[in-house]
Design a protein around this nucleic acid. Structure first.
Length: 360
DNA sequence: TCGACTGACTCAGAAAATTAGCG
DNA sequence: CCGCTAATTTTCTGAGTCAGTCG
């Protein structure tokens, strides 16, 4: 706000923001209404941008850059009850930008009519670009993607440290065995969580059930670390949908079972090949439905338990990926069921180096 | 000598974008 | 196969942590 505006506007709750709100709603509506062609065009443009600006060469390797787009200006949205919420985050200009590259590199040229704040050659740090942000005066960086060598090695080191700390684990275990008996709910939960991390064995289970138990272990870690999320806005609704799917499946299964029964009765009387075949196919149908039902029920359990828990962080930052990889190999769970594409890229080092005997 | 500050980096989770799955 | 909704993935950027420095 200008000084003049500051004098006029003393209380935001007396301001009418509906025009602004409507503008942004219209914008997002327009985005939704875009035709397939328009969307495709934008996608292609983004890919071109990524191709041109999304990579760098570090130690002779072409590496993906994480946040290669500068943060656009806008209203600062601090988390929680932030005193600076709503302040204007100003546009970053080339004159704010420090470029960090090697001495012999070709320095990227600033936009016409502008120059960089500084170009330096510091190989003791990993960032490529930095600038100072105007809200808190803190420094922001452009760095490499988690799949890059430099990040991967750091991650690996982190888990090696954890592994060294394992020396103390006996003490911790004895403690949680004690805590188990604790009357205090919290302490008990923590103990169970630790037990889970320790023992994600899932013998004699099919893949969906194994994945459930993996998620449970993942969740135990998330709970332990207090990774909470706001329950999704559509949670209740989607839960109800799932429940009705389950009910429908149950009905189908009951029907299929009835069919099977009568087919069996027919076969008993007729004793011919044709009716026998019918029995077989009905059996298959029942089996298939049973499997589908179980999958749905597992899904419901998983989702309910996950209502307020954010799994991402613990999966991405706390669980040694080698444990996961080894576990997948040991129990024949495809790694794609646990890690998506990005995650597989980030944990490529672990996927490469781990066999099923890996012990943390 | 020590505590406050700062730079560099990891962690965190909401929002946006994309994809899957269903009728 | 199409359009819609829900689920999943990706993007984005603020928060937290830690070690080194400086007064």
């Amino acid at each position: 706000m200008t000084n003049d505006e500051k004098n006029t506007i003393t209380n935001l709750s007396k301001c009418d923001f509906t025009q602004m709100s409507q503008y942004f709603k219209a914008q997002s509506e327009a985005r939704k209404q875009m035709s397939k062609e328009e969307k495709l065009k934008i996608k292609e443009e983004n890919e071109k941008l990524l191709k041109e600006y999304g990579f760098c060469v570090m130690d002779n390797h072409r590496e993906r850059i994480a946040n290669f787009k500068i943060e656009p200006p806008g209203l600062f949205r601090g988390r929680g009850n932030h005193p600076k919420m709503g302040m204007l985050k100003r546009r970053i200009m080339p004159e704010d930008i420090i470029i960090n590259c090697s001495k012999d590199a070709k320095v990227p040229s600033p936009p016409p009519g502008h120059k960089w704040k500084e170009v330096r050659h510091d190989n003791k740090v990993t960032w490529l670009v930095s600038w100072t942000e105007n809200i808190q005066g803190s420094i922001k960086y452009i760095m490499l993607n988690p799949s890059s060598r430099i990040k991967g090695e750091k991650d690996w080191q982190k888990y090696e440290t954890a592994r060294r700390l394992k020396k103390c684990v006996d003490k911790i275990r004895n403690q949680y065995r004690e805590d188990w008996k604790s009357k205090e709910m919290k302490v008990r939960q923590r103990a169970v969580a630790l037990y889970f991390i320790d023992k994600v064995g899932a013998a004699d289970e099919n893949v969906p059930a194994k994945i459930l138990s993996y998620n449970r272990a993942n969740r135990a870690v998330a709970i332990l670390c207090n990774h909470q999320r706001a329950p999704p806005k559509t949670f209740e609704k989607s839960m109800m949908n799932l429940q009705s799917k389950i009910d429908a499946k149950k009905d189908q299964l009951a029907d299929a079972r009835r069919d099977l029964k009568s087919a069996k009765a027919d076969a008993k009387v007729m004793k011919d090949a044709k009716t026998k075949k019918v029995v077989e196919s009905k059996k298959k149908a029942v089996q298939r439905l049973e499997e589908q039902l179980m999958k749905l029920e597992v899904q419901a359990t998983d989702r309910e338990e996950n209502k307020q828990i954010a799994l991402g962080t613990s999966k991405l930052n706390y669980l040694d990926p080698r444990i996961t990889v080894a576990w997948c190999k040991k129990w024949g769970v495809p790694i794609e069921k646990i890690y998506n594409k990005t995650q597989r890229e980030k944990f490529a080092w672990a996927i490469d180096m781990t066999d099923e005997d890996y012990e943390f």
